[in-house]
Each structure stands twice: as C-alpha cells, then as structure tokens.
C-alpha cells in the first residue's frame, strides 16, 4: 500500500498540471466563431465584424437559439435537459467553447488560420 503522502503528492501534481493547462487554454484569444452541429460547420461568423445584435435558430437533436452581438456569441435559449449551454453566457475571447452536449452543438472561437478574406 502506498503512503497517503505519496498519493497526495501525485494528486497535487496532476491538479497543478491540469490547472496550468486550463488557464493557458481559457486565456486564448480569437474572433472567428464557428458553429458546429453534429460535426458539421454550419455557420462561421467574424465577431469583430458584427455591427448589430441578432439571433438565429439551429435545429439538430434539439433546438438552440444562438445570439450574436459585436465581439461575442452565446446560446440564448435551448431545449436541452441541462441548459449548460445557456448558462455559459456570452463568450467573446475563444478559450472555452460553448457546448450543448445533448444537442450535439459546439461553438468555438479562434483566430482560425484564415489568412485573408475576399469580398
């Protein structure tokens, strides 16, 4: 049997490593939101270019209402059981993707690797 102290050390190291990784991940920056439903990109929005607040609905396993405003995006309403996606609130920087696991919806924000935009 391992000593309790050894277990504490192992757990403390694991916690520290994961905590540092989380902080690094959650402080990433980006401005291009990608709405992915069931593995398919259904909308790509340059949040920096948004001028007016608007919302749209996506239907997959269930229904989510996605709201967009200058620089940020959120799920404003959903019919999923846990509503964690709605509780997530506005996401602007990109560290934490908005996830609605029951409805298979993920909204990621990153700088993508888009090098140029033609219009």
């Amino acid at each position: 049997m391992m000593k309790t102290k050894t277990w504490i050390a192992i757990i403390a190291v694991l916690f520290a490593v994961c905590a540092v990784m989380s902080v690094l991940i959650f402080t990433r920056k980006g401005h291009v939101a990608k709405v992915v439903l069931d593995g398919r990109v259904i909308r790509t929005i340059d949040l920096d270019a948004v001028t007016e607040e608007y919302s749209f609905e996506v239907r997959g396993e269930g229904t989510n209402v996605i709201r967009v405003r200058p620089g940020a995006i959120c799920v404003s309403d959903a019919d999923c059981p846990d509503r964690i996606c709605v509780a997530h609130g506005w996401e602007s920087s990109g560290g934490a993707p908005v996830v609605c696991a029951p409805n298979k919806l993920v909204i990621t924000i990153s700088d993508e690797d888009i090098d140029g935009v033609t219009f």
Binding site: D46, A49, V117, T118
Partner: peptide, 11 residues
Amino acid sequence: VAVRCPYEEGY
C-alpha cells in the same frame, strides 16, 4: 482564404 457571406459578417 475565406469568402465573405453576401450582406453578412460571416464566411
């Protein structure tokens, strides 16, 4: 290279 959505801010 992304192609802008007509009339919108998306790609």
